[in-house]
């Protein structure tokens, strides 16, 4: 078995296209997780509804993303693209994690801050928006960042619902060219190329912002 550099070089553009899809899914999925997670964390403070929402999110968090993807894709109308399904499911799945992160941040804001906001008769919107969240979110930025990396590494699962992201592209070009080893090894390296620098970045963030 000899490594075929020429072939590897030839399929790079294809793989880069796959990587672009991977990045796209990660970015949009993450935006959903950031927004939805925050909403869930806030709703969790409401009695009854909060408990129900929490139970649902626990179910989502303790069952495989892959099954959720295949499940929702099978139910989705054919007008919705596989990539869209993938982004939404990724986003919802990860909001179960980000919600917990936000919650710990919100709980970390001293009770006196809520009381001070009440003493100033701030409306609920200002209390959250100007007092609680700015303090809560600052502290959880590194933890949120960890989930961005985790999500990036979960995007290959989208190949199960026909999205041609990086790994699916590698599978295609690899089997077409009988160059499986090169294809999958390059994918591994591309993942490291993205995750190791981001891990270093997160560690910097952790040092900069106080850990939770």
């Amino acid at each position: 078995m000899i490594w075929d550099f020429e072939w590897t070089w030839q399929v790079m553009p294809d793989l880069m296209q796959g990587l672009a899809v991977t990045v796209q899914a990660t970015v949009f999925g993450y935006l959903i997780a950031l927004v939805l997670g925050l909403a869930i964390a806030m709703v969790r403070r409401v009695p009854v509804i909060g408990t129900i929402v929490h139970a649902v999110m626990e179910f989502i968090r303790t069952t495989p993303l892959l099954v959720q993807l295949v499940f929702v894709f099978a139910l989705a109308p054919s007008t919705v693209s596989a990539l869209t399904v993938g982004i939404v499911v990724l986003g919802v799945h990860y909001s179960a994690y980000t919600a917990e992160v936000y919650r710990s941040g919100i709980e970390g804001v001293p009770k006196g801050q809520w009381e001070a906001a009440r003493a100033l008769s701030l409306p609920a919107g200002r209390t959250w928006g100007a007092v609680v969240l700015p303090q809560a979110i600052r502290k959880v930025i590194p933890a949120l960042g960890n989930y961005l990396i985790a999500m990036f590494k979960d995007t290959p699962l989208l190949l199960a619902i026909t999205v041609t992201e990086l790994l699916a592209t590698a599978r295609q070009v690899g089997s077409a060219g009988f160059r499986i080893v090169e294809a999958y090894t390059v994918v591994g390296f591309l993942f490291l190329l993205v995750s190791i620098p981001s891990a270093i970045l997160i560690r910097r963030l952790e040092r900069r912002y106080a850990a939770v």
Binding site: M1, L159, R171, V181, Y184, T185, G188, A199
Partner: peptide, 23 residues
């Protein structure tokens, strides 16, 4: 830690299942 945390489990598994036998 960095290598095996950095590569997705699925990529790793495909590599073991399909690339390793060829190697």
């Amino acid at each position: 830690v960095e290598v095996f945390r950095g590569i997705a489990a699925l990529v790793l598994m495909f590599w073991m299942a399909y690339a390793l036998p060829l190697l």
